[in-house]
Design a protein around this nucleic acid. Structure first.
Lengths: 336, 336
DNA sequence: CTGAAAGCGCTTACAG
DNA sequence: CTGAAAGCGCTTACAG
């Protein structure tokens, strides 16, 4: 069942069918009705590959990321898929094996070459390609989610990571915690730096000294959180609260604490970042910074679809979405 | 940079370039070298949409599923993506909003129409379309992962869910548990039925009576696990162990128990199914049935790619992969 | 408001 | 071992 079959059945040209399918074009009600009927009768479904080849309206978005097991990525995928589905776009997903510029470059080129008219790039790839000649060479709009900072030539939808981390740290300080351990993310992600700044800002704002031994670095993985948590809890003077830079890392802290028979949140307050599903699947559920990842991805994908359909209006934007501090049972006022 | 540009630079026809790109064909070493060099010089990347349109070798697989937030689906995605990447295939992913036959049908038709040469269908869609005329109408090989049973006209890669559930239940019985709560999955999934059978088999095999009040049903979600766990623990004579039919449900049991200040595994043993990431991100880590979801998906996708490339050998297969019982800290011998 | 023609970048027979 | 031709299903200007 091709567009031609539909055209014949409806007694019009393929061009008219194409117009009806894409929703645009002006035509008499009857023609449109006839075409719709033929489409229904024949059970016609457009061939996206052909649409894309003919370099058409069917915006197909390319998405690259690393480690799809990750909850952040799952959420991002959901959002992008939603935007694509609700707006008739196609999503092509590509897993980049390594977090290197070279990997990102070859995946991105292939995607564009294969019909992607816009690109959604997950961290840390957006940081990696930002500002390089590649961005212009690709020649399509590019957007990212949760980049952790403004990206000169890539649109971004993010929260104010620095302010969010500051707000969370201040919450902990208000709860009476003076020694707050921090588990930073990997340097490759701009968001790691921004969140760390926020942690520092809070100390400065509240006149609390920064204790260097309370600062550790992980790579956003649960296992790295385990290591960092042990180091922190083994300190001669351990922290009374630990802020992990994402939920997986915070969950690792909870795990280590429970394993040591500590009672949470009495003996230790724990906070995370993202509000991914795991935040409420562990006990005690995590106090965390809610970052609407799916919505952000949906918005970013929407931006791209708009840019593809209305190139004249397209431009690089930096959208900041609101974050929310969610206090759950993993934090409490410091016990005297 | 099209295939033509490469052909000109290498001084051959596009057909020869095409042959080199797809790896097949017989040609002199020099021609091949020249073409490869031209490809490198020009940074040529084939246009998958065009390949697909020309109804070519570039196997593109369509994948439909529901609720990508789910750990099972993430793992499945990873596996499929791996297979696709390592074998030069393209993966197009489609989220089916509702778990209905109609939804599956329209998504599947669209996928095929748009160039998918084979389909990977997640539960419960494989159960939904199995045995219907649609399968033949689609006209492409279809495979599923973890279907929970043999599917007449769809290839499947699965574990023996019944035997796995029996093995887990027997482990619990051997640990001294006589009253084992069970939280079944939704009826739509064949695996729910199979696992429940396994739970029963174990009781029969060990000469243990089945207590109907110990049987509850969830829908594989964490929240449904919360409800079921409360019901079970509120019983006049509560179970000393609870077996959840997936890890999310088991995590919910752990959560409810900890919330009630029970000490795990002393007061309650908990077991799950799947060995998804959450199994080791909670404390105590879950005893569970390890089902190699990613590998299974990779295998299923590989089967499909083979079927596309060698249609003459293609047939419906039912592959059973080994499961593994992983005992972690969430289970223990029943305390007297 | 509707249509005929050319073309998107590739591959598939079919020749040579 | 290599190439010229036709065609995959659609869309984009351009006419009428």
């Amino acid at each position: 069942v091709t567009i031609q079959a539909v055209a014949e059945r409806a007694g019009v040209s393929t061009m008219t069918v194409s117009n009806v399918v894409r929703g645009g074009g002006k035509m008499s009600q009857e023609t449109r009705q006839a075409v719709m009927q033929a489409i229904r009768d024949l059970n016609y479904v457009p061939n996206l590959a052909a649409q894309s080849l003919a370099s058409a309206g069917a915006a197909t978005l390319g998405l690259i990321y690393h480690n799809p097991q990750n909850a952040f990525l799952s959420a991002m995928l959901v959002g992008a898929l939603n935007a694509a589905a609700s707006r008739g776009a196609q999503l092509v997903v590509r897993d980049c094996r390594e977090r290197t510029y070279e990997n990102a470059e070859s995946s991105l080129r292939s995607l564009v070459r294969s019909g992607s008219r816009a690109l959604l790039v997950a961290p840390p790839f957006c940081e990696l390609i930002m500002g390089t000649p590649l961005v212009a060479e690709l020649g399509v709009p590019i957007a990212s989610v949760s980049s952790g900072g403004l990206l000169s030539d890539i649109s971004t939808v993010r929260v104010d990571d620095r302010a969010a981390a500051q707000a969370m740290t201040e919450l902990l300080i208000r709860r009476g915690h003076h020694r707050i351990g921090y588990i930073a993310g990997p340097a490759l992600h701009f968001s790691s730096g921004a969140r760390l700044e926020g942690y520092r800002d809070a100390h400065a704002a509240q006149g609390l000294p920064l204790a260097p031994e309370l600062l550790t670095e992980g790579d956003f993985s649960f296992d790295s959180g385990l290591v960092a948590a042990r180091r922190l809890l083994d300190l001669p003077e351990p922290p009374s609260a630990i802020f992990g830079s994402n939920d997986d890392v915070a969950a690792a802290v909870v795990s280590v604490a429970l394993q040591r028979n500590m009672s949470l949140p009495r003996d230790l307050s724990v906070a995370g970042f993202d509000d991914t599903p795991i935040a409420v699947k562990i006990w005690p559920p995590l106090t965390t910074v809610r970052q609407p990842i799916s919505d952000m991805a949906e918005r970013a994908a929407g931006l791209l679809i708009d840019a593809v359909r209305h190139p004249e209006r397209a431009r690089v934007v930096d959208e900041i979405m609101p974050f929310e501090i969610i206090e759950r049972a993993s934090t409490a006022t410091r016990s005297a």
